[in-house]
Design a protein around this nucleic acid. Sequence first.
DNA 1: GATGAATGAGTTTTCATTCAT
DNA 2: TATGAATGAAAACTCATTCAT
Lengths: 193, 193, 193, 193
Amino acid sequence: MSKTTPKQHLLKAASATFSKYGFYKTAMEDIAAKAQKAKGSLYYHFGSKELLFEAVVLEELNQLKAALTVVFADAISDSRAILKNYMLKRMEVLRYAPNYQETLRPNFYEHYDFVNTVKEEMVQWEVQQIMQLIGRGTEEGQLELPGDHLVYSQVLVMLLQGLEPNFYLKGEYDRLEAHFDNLINIITKGISK
Amino acid sequence: MSKTTPKQHLLKAASATFSKYGFYKTAMEDIAAKAQKAKGSLYYHFGSKELLFEAVVLEELNQLKAALTVVFADAISDSRAILKNYMLKRMEVLRYAPNYQETLRPNFYEHYDFVNTVKEEMVQWEVQQIMQLIGRGTEEGQLELPGDHLVYSQVLVMLLQGLEPNFYLKGEYDRLEAHFDNLINIITKGISK
Amino acid sequence: MSKTTPKQHLLKAASATFSKYGFYKTAMEDIAAKAQKAKGSLYYHFGSKELLFEAVVLEELNQLKAALTVVFADAISDSRAILKNYMLKRMEVLRYAPNYQETLRPNFYEHYDFVNTVKEEMVQWEVQQIMQLIGRGTEEGQLELPGDHLVYSQVLVMLLQGLEPNFYLKGEYDRLEAHFDNLINIITKGISK
Amino acid sequence: MSKTTPKQHLLKAASATFSKYGFYKTAMEDIAAKAQKAKGSLYYHFGSKELLFEAVVLEELNQLKAALTVVFADAISDSRAILKNYMLKRMEVLRYAPNYQETLRPNFYEHYDFVNTVKEEMVQWEVQQIMQLIGRGTEEGQLELPGDHLVYSQVLVMLLQGLEPNFYLKGEYDRLEAHFDNLINIITKGISK
DNA sequence: GATGAATGAGTTTTCATTCAT
DNA sequence: TATGAATGAAAACTCATTCAT
């Protein structure tokens, strides 16, 4: 069952094309060609290029959130381990959610409320999760942070966000993945007791 | 003396406009208007939108390199302090070199050799400088790195690159700047002995 | 039935306009105006000015070939008469196929393979037909050629090609047409027995 | 002595460039580059693109006229031989006067009086020479023309004009030259007694 | 649901020409 | 004489969007 609906089919093509060329360089025409459909269909189902992009991003976002929720819900591992798992999982999931990244760029659609909404929601959600984690870790004496927990959490998310462009460049991911665990150790060591 | 040449005048207008709207959303028309010149002048001096953008990026790059060279040449401070200075200086300079950032995005100009050339040259230069620094610091017993120095240097540059988009968002820089020193401590602590 | 398709409608307008002003002096705007359509439609259907011109030329070419095929298939007339008919028909048809002519100019689109392909195909086809005709005429003792049949055929086609620019100048055709039959006699007399 | 003046230098560059790309595809910029001078110099010396082209054509024309004058002044050879010499010489000279050809194309600068003037002057001059020649030849009983001498002369010039584009295509000249004498025989045989 | 056709505003680019120096 | 700089009008081309069928 669950044959992919026409809408899903278009969404998939849109995601692939946007992630390859970025929002501006992608023409509706390109997406239609990829989906082997007419341009009109895109407008029938999504209304506009922006709304189509939103749909693509939202889709990725939900998958990311679902995956991270599992990590944070971990009741067994200690804070440091969870933090590590979070970083690894984030990298892994976002590898296949490149469009969300695009919304995080400066200058990207400064005026579109959608982006600001999405951005704030997701980033703040991640930051909240990490703050809670750090809070717990500090109480339990596993971690020690000299500065403001909120700012630290924010910058940690930024660090991870920032790593992605480089990580996902062709070839780079595979080469760096091997060292990633090691690097996380360095970063977490900085906040360990 | 040294009145700014017409070309420099245009370059300045281009830099400001590109950095405000990004490459794609900037029209040659916009730049010309900003410079109070005719569009044709831009083509007379730079040949095409791409080449103009290249010129803008190259300009920024040279300034960045010059500033960082001074930092790395520091013969007095110890490795950890230089590393810290490097990070701070990089953030500071790039705040006014936003166009170079644009070239570092995935998907940006995948096919333009210029970008790849520029990217590689600058990144590799930074990586080299850091490796030397770490090498010295390790010999002198100030630093201790568990993994490969090359990979570590590469990832450090990536981390810094990645921070920028978020740092330079309106308002964010000023808010985060205060905590930056503190954060660098965390990061460098991770590799200190 | 068989209402002209939109594409055919545009093609007609393009043909008329190109033939009036030539390739370079014709603006897409002009063609669109002639067709009472928007410029965009031309790009929708043909992709570029060049491709549109190609389509125009190909159209004319097919008509020319069809008309000449009938002449060469003539099983009744003798070689000399067919040769004469060919020359007359060619002039007559090409009077309404002026765009193909443009491709035959030296320097025209030196680099476009399309033109070279088209040129060679058509010219070689004509040359072949004439060679066969001459071959038959010689065997049957109607014609006598001192030199190489191939070269003669090639030059004959060139002669005819060369006549056209002058023939189709405003007014010239009508004035010279009356004498054309007479002139063909002179030319064919040169190879008659 | 007679160092080439700057003006001659520019004229040479213009001639070469026009003949390579044709009038429309040649930019003043191209000519200036070829001459290693600034665009402004062209305007200083010639005033406009059109006037520059005129100068180029006039130059060629004078050389052609001079060469043909010698041929027609031949008091020894008979009419047929002179006609043959004329054809051969015309081909030979025009091989290096390709720009004049451009003015003979339909659609070329329909509105420029210069072209019409030039065209008429030269063509009529040639036609006149040939008419006189044919007149003489007919009186002396060497030639026999069924039709109007004027029209015949005009068409003969056209034939020769028409041959050139093909003759001067790369390679074609050398291949066809060998047979040219033979072909002239065919053509002149058509009007011989 | 789907699409072929059409559109028009916007964008890059070209280039003959002008002119101060 | 010569030229670097500037210009602006015109041209090719792009593309999100609309709509009748």
